[in-house]
């Protein structure tokens, strides 16, 4: 299992050293207790809000309006018979496709930035990063007009490209950093062996870069998964709408089904969590390789 293979638990020296320290010297017990208390407090604060929602999602009106607190599946049934499953599928399709596309495109761009010198490179790299600095909210109208003219509102395609665009700057930035940790000698050796540049990228560099790619892709996925400003404006048909929009619509103006809101929140959060679990050990070790450099 990936989780236990993390390098965390494997430091017999440190562990035994601490063992001695912890149990060998009387009077110092308060410190481990303090650490444990701190850890528990933090874990509680991080997890409790989601537990609250999870429990509420099995109560009528989320337990907010009614004092009746019997267990019920009703919220989930309401949600999925109301077509929420469609939003889940749409989100998955759009986010997976956008993540794949953006990662692919970013790996290519990052490789060029990391391995070649050419005129205007600094400027182009700077411009790519500038994308991170712009408030998206002012882009809504111009982008809406652009997408409509191209016939890409209410389509997976338009949304995929949109999300690809918003995840490229950060992805390029991170991947360029990771690539710097991959020795150039690797490329050169392959080139001398007669491989083409493309082969070098896909056969040699790509596998070595995998942890970096995984973590970058995860960020891109999260960005798409939680985005709602663009989705709100560009997707109006239930057949293509994504989870954040489906969730948002559950708040009527005159009334809202809070139980369904909670169930929807759970349904929106669980897939990302499931996605993260197998990745997390890799993610945290791959994450800062670029930045730390």
């Amino acid at each position: 299992m990936t989780l236990t293979s993390a390098p965390l638990n494997r430091d017999p020296d440190v562990t035994s050293h601490w063992h001695r320290r912890m149990f060998g010297r009387p009077g110092r017990l308060f410190e481990p207790l303090l650490i444990l208390a701190g850890l528990l407090a933090i874990l509680f604060a991080l997890v409790y809000p989601m537990v609250f929602i999870l429990l509420g999602s099995f109560k009528t009106q989320g337990g907010l309006l009614a004092s009746a607190t019997a267990f019920t599946w009703a919220n989930y049934i309401t949600l999925f018979t109301g077509g929420f499953g469609r939003f889940l599928v749409n989100s998955l399709v759009i986010c997976v496709a956008a993540t794949a596309l953006s990662t692919l495109v970013s790996v290519n761009a990052a490789y060029v930035f990391s391995r070649f010198r050419f005129r205007g490179k600094g400027l182009i790299f700077g411009s790519v990063l500038f994308g991170q600095m712009f408030p998206w909210i002012v882009l809504v109208n111009p982008l809406f007009i652009l997408l409509t003219q191209a016939g890409f509102t209410n389509s997976y395609t338009g949304m995929i490209f949109c999300y690809t665009a918003i995840s490229i700057p950060f992805s390029v930035y991170m991947l360029t950093g990771y690539l710097a940790t991959v020795p150039r000698e690797l490329d050169e050796a392959a080139l001398i062996d007669g491989a083409s540049r493309y082969q070098v990228v896909w056969r040699i560099v790509f596998p070595v870069l995998m942890p970096g790619i995984v973590s970058t892709a995860t960020y891109a996925f999260m960005l798409c998964w939680t985005e709602y400003l663009f989705a709100l404006a560009f997707l109006t048909k239930p057949a293509v709408q994504t989870l954040p929009i489906g969730l948002y619509q559950l708040f009527g103006d005159d009334r809202a089904d809070w139980g369904a809101v909670m169930a929807a929140s759970v349904v929106t959060t669980i897939p990302t969590l499931l996605l993260f679990l197998p990745l997390q050990a890799r993610l945290s070790s791959g994450l800062t390789a670029g930045a730390v450099k």
């Binding site: 399709v93 496709a97 652009l146 191209a150 890409f152 209410n154 389509s155 997976y156 395609t157 995929i160 490209f161 048909k237 057949a239 293509v240």
Partner: peptide
């Protein structure tokens, strides 16, 4: 956009 999306045209839309 049109040119760019030729490849993506196979993706489902409405």
């Amino acid at each position: 956009i049109g040119a760019l999306m030729v490849g993506a045209a196979l993706l489902p839309g409405v």
